[in-house]
Design a protein around this nucleic acid. Sequence first.
DNA 1: GCGTTTTGCTTGCAAGAGCTAGCACTCCGC
DNA 2: GCGGAGTGCTAGCTCTTGCAAGCAAAACGC
Lengths: 144, 144
Amino acid sequence: MATPKDLPQDIGTFIRDLRQTAKISLRQLADKAGVSNPYLSQIERGLRKPSAEVLQQIASALRVSTPAMYLRAGLLDGEGQQGVLAAIAVDPELTIAQKQSLTQIYETFRNENARNAPPASEAETPSPDAESAPRTTPIAEETK
Amino acid sequence: MATPKDLPQDIGTFIRDLRQTAKISLRQLADKAGVSNPYLSQIERGLRKPSAEVLQQIASALRVSTPAMYLRAGLLDGEGQQGVLAAIAVDPELTIAQKQSLTQIYETFRNENARNAPPASEAETPSPDAESAPRTTPIAEETK
DNA sequence: GCGTTTTGCTTGCAAGAGCTAGCACTCCGC
DNA sequence: GCGGAGTGCTAGCTCTTGCAAGCAAAACGC
């Protein structure tokens, strides 16, 4: 497994930024997320690499979507094409057949567009990051 | 952390099913995924609970989307309705017209499912298993 | 000043992830 | 029969994750 040193500080910094934006202490977030506060401290400082479950718990406590947290941690890709297929795959409202149909239609569309050779400049969308941030609802925790 | 015993066997069974559908041996998949074959064996039998990174590697080797794998492992929720529409909206590979078409098809499907008000017994379909499998391109590995 | 509370961090440990070395078994060709 | 190749698994090991116990410093109220 990759050592925490190989991991960009992003996820730790990301979590600390969100926490500070929400104006809650490390202990408050740890309690809310159900992880120990020393461990959360280590995560924020990049000394430990949290599992997906821990990330999920922290995301929930910070009211950030799990995929956004995973994206930041490098556990999910931010490519838009994967996003649609992924979303279709996880949609509980679709039957299997419908998922297959949508996937095929989607891929047909993409093939058409590839044939038309769309401008490369449009392929680079930094939007995933920008989307994650505004989705965070600041949590003003009262002092205990 | 939850012990593997608490984890449904689903992810291990899921991986084994996909692997067998792809007609590759445990060793071939392990090599391809970059994990040790004993460990993959343990994962398949539910004796170990793999990290998200390992799941990602296995997903890639089996040509399954990472989110689908995570979903199965309980690392992602199946909240899809928002996800699909949002993903379509941000997909850089789709034209406006295509986005509209996909959106309409998606909503038609959902309306059909809502109208059918599927019996609760049918709503719980193990078919998601079968749905994921046919989307995997069978990998016929040559014997080394 | 004091004591108390809050804050973030250090340290040592247990449990679990993931590995290597190797085993037992099956199948095949000679 | 044999050996070789392929298969899935066992066992012991190292390292990492996440924790509990506790520390040092800052903030606060008296």
